[in-house]
């Protein structure tokens, strides 16, 4: 597996996309630091990037990569290579590339502006988010034989998790506004990786005070060890579960 990862990574790190993604993130981060002196507000803006840009770019890039390397994957599979090894290698390479770009693109400017400690939790969350959406991209890719359709499914995943789900959540909150529904919303939030990252990062920051009782409830939960573990475990599930399903499908897929 390490052999495959090493070479695919060597290839991916040289792609124009990875470079452009890194530069894009770096420019945006630098601009944010230039425009605003308050590191906590910059962190909030970077949070927006992690919540919107990272999932979209990760899922689209991973899907395109899967279909671009289709022939190469069949070539490798004509070698004595296990299918699961190949799929996991591909996943590790793509996730590694995207996560590396994120860490370099956001981390280096933050380091230069001396705000790395504030940004660090965000970077970790961003890496988890990247892994999760690469997993979802692989799921979308193995669900079909057609590149265009796979990209379509990927975009649907993204739209669902970043927009539709929150709309539904708002509907739930609205419908049950007379009841104490914090625990239920907590469960619902955990069912969307974007929401999970957003809330857990917000709770680490001072601004959570603006969220009133809801914020206080989440803060007491996410501030403790249980909340932290819950967050990590849920994120792991969000990374591993789609990957596990895509592996299962890939094992018996006709290439």
């Amino acid at each position: 597996m390490t052999t495959i990862v090493r070479y695919i990574l060597a290839d991916l790190l040289r792609t124009r996309f990875a470079l452009a993604y890194t530069v894009f993130l770096a420019i945006v981060t630098m601009a944010l630091f230039q425009l605003d002196n308050d590191p906590s507000r910059v962190t909030l803006s970077i949070l927006n990037i992690v919540l919107m840009v990272v999932p979209l770019f990760s899922i689209v890039f991973a899907t395109i990569h899967y279909y671009n390397s289709y022939e190469f994957m069949t070539l490798l599979l004509s070698q004595p290579v296990k299918r699961s090894t190949l799929l996991l290698s591909e996943w590790a390479s793509v996730a590694g590339t995207m996560a590396g770009s994120l860490v370099a693109g956001v981390g280096i400017p933050s380091l230069i502006y001396g705000a790395l400690t504030q940004v660090l939790p965000l970077l970790l969350a961003g890496v988890a988010m990247t892994c999760c959406f690469v997993s979802l991209a692989f799921l979308a890719s193995v669900m079909t034989q057609d590149k265009a359709r796979a990209i379509g499914i990927s975009l649907l995943f993204w739209i669902y998790f970043s927009m539709i789900y929150d709309g539904l959540l708002l509907l739930v909150v609205y419908s049950f506004s007379d009841y104490p529904i914090e625990k239920i919303t907590l469960a619902l939030i955990a069912l969307n990786p974007i929401d999970l990252v957003r809330i857990s990062i917000l709770m680490e920051m001072d601004v959570s005070a603006l969220m009133g009782y809801t914020g206080a409830f989440y803060r007491s939960f996410f501030g403790g060890t249980t909340g932290m573990l819950f967050c990590i475990v849920m994120m792991m599930i969000w990374i591993l579960f789609p990957l596990w399903i895509s592996r299962r499908i890939f094992m018996n897929k006709d290439l």
């Binding site: 070479y7 695919i8 060597a10 290839d11 991916l12 040289r14 792609t15 671009n68 390397s69 289709y70 022939e71 190469f72 069949t74 070539l75 004509s78």
Partner: peptide, 14 residues
């Protein structure tokens, strides 16, 4: 087995 595929595409930057 040695296999020579009909279409050969390899990672661009390798």
């Amino acid at each position: 087995i040695g296999y020579m595929p009909q279409i050969s595409r390899y990672p661009d930057n390798l």
